[in-house]
């Protein structure tokens, strides 16, 4: 390699690193600020804090309006897990039917499913709210997880259909010869083989539920039922300058689950995004 092209490669590399730092700067700043005493957060802008304290974390954890931040996190985790199970089960069932089985009207239902992916949820949200309100479900988790049990996130059905279509059919055939029925093939062959697609679904369901603000804002009213996004908003609303520290601290805490999931399951992210183009 000659010197100019090596210099060029170094330049590219340097640029990529610098840009990466700029991209990450806001998050780094958030983390650093969460360890600064409140009075220093906006007066001292340097990345190296003059004084380090855990005050913000203890204060933030004790929460606002008598609810501990631990409650919000517990609620979010519980809701997230139920939604994950709901989506994985209901979407994989539908995907198996669409991807492997033949039945009457299949094309019609499949087309309908594809259309619902593109639908802005605003055209359903008002009647849904009225419906859940009349059921007495407002301020419960029902409106947030029941739709997942019913495979309303058709995007994941599509993702799994694509995956299941790629699985070799010989396996089903030999299983049929061995006496497996349709249901057993789903359970013993398709589900284990579609594991990567199930994991991708689980990951994105959890993170999107964790971040989902609109429907949680709509359906959860009492602080005891609040989830992480609503808890953070509570801080923001009640905050004078003194409250920024605890809010930053809890913001950092709220980002941890997504980061853990991302770093432990990274390859499913990249595959999931590049093969199906998950939005975001």
């Amino acid at each position: 390699m000659n010197t100019t092209s090596r210099a060029q490669a170094m330049g590219t590399h340097l640029f990529v690193i610098l840009l990466g730092l700029v991209m990450l700067y806001p998050i780094i700043w958030l983390v650093v600020s969460s360890f600064k005493p409140s009075y220093l957060i906006f007066s001292d802008l340097s990345i190296w804090p003059k004084e380090v304290t855990l005050d913000n974390y203890t204060k933030g954890w004790s929460g606002v309006s008598k609810s501990s931040f631990g409650t919000f996190i517990g609620n979010s985790i519980m809701l997230g897990l139920i939604c994950v199970v709901g989506n994985v089960v209901s979407c994989s069932m539908a995907a198996y039917a669409f991807g492997r089985l033949s039945f009457s009207w299949k094309k019609v239902w499949f087309a309908l499913m594809m259309v619902t992916i593109m639908l802005p949820h605003h055209v359903t949200v008002i009647p849904q709210y009225v419906f859940f309100f009349k059921m007495g479900w407002v301020d419960t988790f029902g409106p947030l997880f029941v739709p997942k049990l019913l495979a309303t996130e058709a995007f994941f059905i599509f993702l799994m259909v694509q995956f299941i279509r790629g699985l070799p059919r010989d396996l089903d055939e030999s299983a049929t010869i061995d006496g497996c029925g349709t249901i057993q093939i789903y359970w013993r062959i398709i589900l284990p083989l579609a594991f990567p697609a199930l994991i991708t679904t689980a990951i994105f369901t959890f993170i999107w539920t964790w971040d989902d603000f609109f429907s949680q804002l709509l359906y959860l009213n009492s602080p005891g039922n609040y989830t992480v996004p609503l808890g953070l908003r509570l801080f923001m609303d009640s905050s004078g300058e003194s409250n920024w520290g605890p809010m930053f601290a809890m913001s950092v805490v709220s980002l941890i689950p997504a980061l853990i999931i991302f770093f432990s399951l990274q390859r499913y992210f990249v595959e999931g995004i590049s093969t199906t183009g998950i939005k975001g």
Binding site: I27, W210, V252, L255, A258, L259, G280
Partner: peptide
Amino acid sequence: IPTLLGGSVA
């Protein structure tokens, strides 16, 4: 990472 975290209230 910004895409991973950016949709959050935080």
